[in-house]
Design a protein around this nucleic acid. Sequence first.
DNA 1: CATGAATGAGAATTCATTCAT
DNA 2: TATGAATGAATTCTCATTCAT
Lengths: 208, 208, 208, 208
Amino acid sequence: MPDDLNRSARKRQAIVDAATRIFLEKGYQDTSMDEIAAAAAVSKQTVYKNFADKKRLFTDIILGTLDAVAEPFGTEIRALTDAGDLEKALHELAGRYLAAVLQPPVIRLRRLIIGESGRLPELARTYYERAPERTLTRLAECFGELAERGVLAVEDPMLAAEHFAFLILGRPLDRALFHGQEQPLAPADVVRLTAPGVRVFLAAYGKH
Amino acid sequence: MPDDLNRSARKRQAIVDAATRIFLEKGYQDTSMDEIAAAAAVSKQTVYKNFADKKRLFTDIILGTLDAVAEPFGTEIRALTDAGDLEKALHELAGRYLAAVLQPPVIRLRRLIIGESGRLPELARTYYERAPERTLTRLAECFGELAERGVLAVEDPMLAAEHFAFLILGRPLDRALFHGQEQPLAPADVVRLTAPGVRVFLAAYGKH
Amino acid sequence: MPDDLNRSARKRQAIVDAATRIFLEKGYQDTSMDEIAAAAAVSKQTVYKNFADKKRLFTDIILGTLDAVAEPFGTEIRALTDAGDLEKALHELAGRYLAAVLQPPVIRLRRLIIGESGRLPELARTYYERAPERTLTRLAECFGELAERGVLAVEDPMLAAEHFAFLILGRPLDRALFHGQEQPLAPADVVRLTAPGVRVFLAAYGKH
Amino acid sequence: MPDDLNRSARKRQAIVDAATRIFLEKGYQDTSMDEIAAAAAVSKQTVYKNFADKKRLFTDIILGTLDAVAEPFGTEIRALTDAGDLEKALHELAGRYLAAVLQPPVIRLRRLIIGESGRLPELARTYYERAPERTLTRLAECFGELAERGVLAVEDPMLAAEHFAFLILGRPLDRALFHGQEQPLAPADVVRLTAPGVRVFLAAYGKH
DNA sequence: CATGAATGAGAATTCATTCAT
DNA sequence: TATGAATGAATTCTCATTCAT
């Protein structure tokens, strides 16, 4: 019977994997349940026994992905507080932030959710809260602490977080949403794309 | 027979109007050609005679909308160059910029194109170039001129334009893409949402 | 264009005919839309363009049949009022009543509606009102008039109508609902099946 | 191992109970084997081991219900023979007859069998013989005896039974078959619904 | 023996697109 | 030229029944 549990769990995982891949690759509407079942090497019944319907399968998968995507970056932000050289640390964080957000699967996920936000508004809202907004909140907490320590001249930490985020991500993210050929962002570009934004941020919020 | 031409042109316009409305309201995939024909009070044949297929109809319409959306804002930007009080002018521009971009139909258009960027990459690229990027370019030109005049401390005008744009739009635009209930942005909110961004911009790029 | 109207109307009629036949023959659930379209020599689209969905097709057909079924018998009842020999007229009416109700298609219709009354309660109620109940009401009106003329000793006409109806129809109708092999009721049986009921009716409601 | 037998028997009973309930509630076609197995807390295999297929399960259950439904009323009828006040006894019997037949589950059963009589003619016939007809036969036996004793003027006892039955049940039963909202028949209504029929019966078959 | 998976098919409904009139 | 019909396929979901573990 532990065998059964494993078999069941394995099948479920196969479905999740296949569906994630195909959904991200072809979008929600262009992915058929048949296709998913076939790719998971599972009968359609098994799909439907694990997920009530297509919508549920999709949202379950997306929400399942969420934590995996957003969590790891959270710790990186917290590390900022203990940094010796703040400027250097901000540059590094900016680079990692940009790289994280521009990962092709992350971009595709964004597109997917934005595209389906009409049909699945609930999902879109939840995603927004748990991913981009959560990161902003973390940044804000961090900036707040740095402000208390007198390292940054920040009055409204959430506002500062937004400014930092979009000085770094704004243009590249906007561009990426509209451009299909997602390349994983050459490390060489990272500095070029982030350094000016960090400088602007420090010009406004740094201690002179 | 100018009558025929007019009738033809009128029908074509009816199709364009109906399709624009329905596409923006329900999305690409959830809009059927039947629906469009019915809403335009035209036979399906007439639709197909004017537009080769659904894809073409969609892209033609979107591209047709583009100029109407992007043009008028262009002139507003150019006006910035002649402003007496730059700070005040920037605040005003920021407000109009935000309001323009957050208009519900504009947001829906963005969502639509992002959502279909997989199926219609060409369209997405074109849209990006002709709308957001064009605005950035105009802003950059303007900032370049102001720099030459010594009013702003801008080295790379395009970069400054990006920073300005996303300090203003970043968060609200990102939010709007994920949230369905598009309200036309209360005038009261405009200042609250834009003033801090302009201040940051001036902290970095203003002459002290 | 009158051609088109005719063609359209003809197609619609073909659908109605085919659907009526198949529904009555195999029941609601065992009839597929494919089957109906094929039998009507029409594309499935045409079926769906004429009838929003299967339920609608079914109810439209049933309700359409109704008047055709119930009307003609109404006039027969009214004729009763003018009969010279009431006893003889009642016997004749009873025979025609029974024959009408036991017609195979009428029985099948009853079965069908009763069987689907769970899924289509609205339809069942409407059917009941427009067919069996309407006939009872007509009978009651007739008996009421005869009572006023002193020909029948009837206090509550509706009650008398019910008694008449079920003294005649009760058993044969009940039997028929449960027995598949519907034979069109041999004329020879009619008298045997109805005469005793009429006698009971007259024993209770006749003038002695 | 009486334990095993009991376990088996208990499971079988659970299946029967669940299936009876669900079939009566949702009808034959709208009930799935999955649902039954789940409701019985049993694997589908167990269902199939006990009942060859869905049809068999259904008919077995229906036929099993039959005696429980029809038997108890039999004894009530027999009691009629020994009644002191026949008129009173007939009124009482009529009331109990009507109440028995209009019980919601009995009505649902009738609907179910009538609805499936196309697919399961055998079952319909058997049901008819064992339930309504059996009751009529008992009534006829009873009336025959009363006739021999000179208490009723009955020539053809079966005919008299039919007349009694449908004078009482006719309209309410017909109505109930078509109307979903089955209420358990208020005791207050019983007399109102049955008394006139009994009076007609006695007018025709009573000793004056 | 019982559980979950698989089978294999069928149903309702919808669509983009093309004929025929 | 414009209308309704037709095509032909796809999609989601469900089901009764049977394997494999």
